[in-house]
Nucleic acid binder design. Sequence first.
DNA 1: TGATAATAGTTGTTTTTGTAACTAACAAGC
DNA 2: GCTTGTTAGTTACAAAAACAACTATTATCA
Lengths: 146, 146
Amino acid sequence: MAKNDDFDLQEFLPYLLNQAAEESSLAFQQAYKNKYGMLRTEWRVLFHLGIYGRLTATDIVDRARIHKTKISRAVQKLVDRRFAVRQRSENDRRQEYLTLTPAGTAAYEDLKKIANDYDARLESQFTKDEAALLRVMLRRLAGMES
Amino acid sequence: MAKNDDFDLQEFLPYLLNQAAEESSLAFQQAYKNKYGMLRTEWRVLFHLGIYGRLTATDIVDRARIHKTKISRAVQKLVDRRFAVRQRSENDRRQEYLTLTPAGTAAYEDLKKIANDYDARLESQFTKDEAALLRVMLRRLAGMES
DNA sequence: TGATAATAGTTGTTTTTGTAACTAACAAGC
DNA sequence: GCTTGTTAGTTACAAAAACAACTATTATCA
């Protein structure tokens, strides 16, 4: 079966990263998908608003490195579900500030707990030092220079 | 700006993994996308065939953990581009064996070189030990128990 | 001022993906 | 043999992503 070849897909970092990312997203995805009918971009926006408070769409684009059309549609859905509200800026009427409603905050708090638990479970596969190193390496690979 | 909150997205493993995976895929993606008009699933199939030789679609599904409809469409495109050929099995006429054509092999060899170079470049950000540990950790997270 | 460019965000169109239902071939038990 | 179930792979339709073009507002500078 195995042809003699010197490339090992199981060692190729982009491949491994993708497999790990996909697998690790799965369980958590169930939570926000089934419980709140959200998509990945939506929980990301929700979390950004939960963590940082009031932000504009562009703020989120810059922080999350997600394209603005995806953000725009995710925001629209969060607003539709009454998880967030828009407020047009007085200084610059092009931009609008986004904040979570009480319902959005509640959803965020709930998902935050689930995320923390899940993260702890993932991390428990490693020693504390390993986990810390892993995060440093991932941030470097992601270009979020520590 | 920063609301006082105890959750840090920059530490959440699924998020970090996604960011790192996306970023690390980018440069290599340009190669197969621009040079050969391939999608991610297509280069994965191409690589599987390049590495292992003759495989059925189901073999690839099992190894790559990609859904069979995606494999089916990726195979179709590789066949359309004359990078692979199908050969129906004599024993079991439901399955078909897939192999690379000379053109497919050439594309694979070319991309393999690019992949190796790129991997080396990514890896050069770390020490040898760190890189080895990273791979072990990613495999564990991906559920590919080493 | 007024023309041109830049920015915030949205909308429309095309590609890809996800999910389910499907065809064809084989397997197992009666 | 014939019914029922399983497996390999494809296809159809709905959901989501990518990409480009758009509106509205603000900035730049002759």
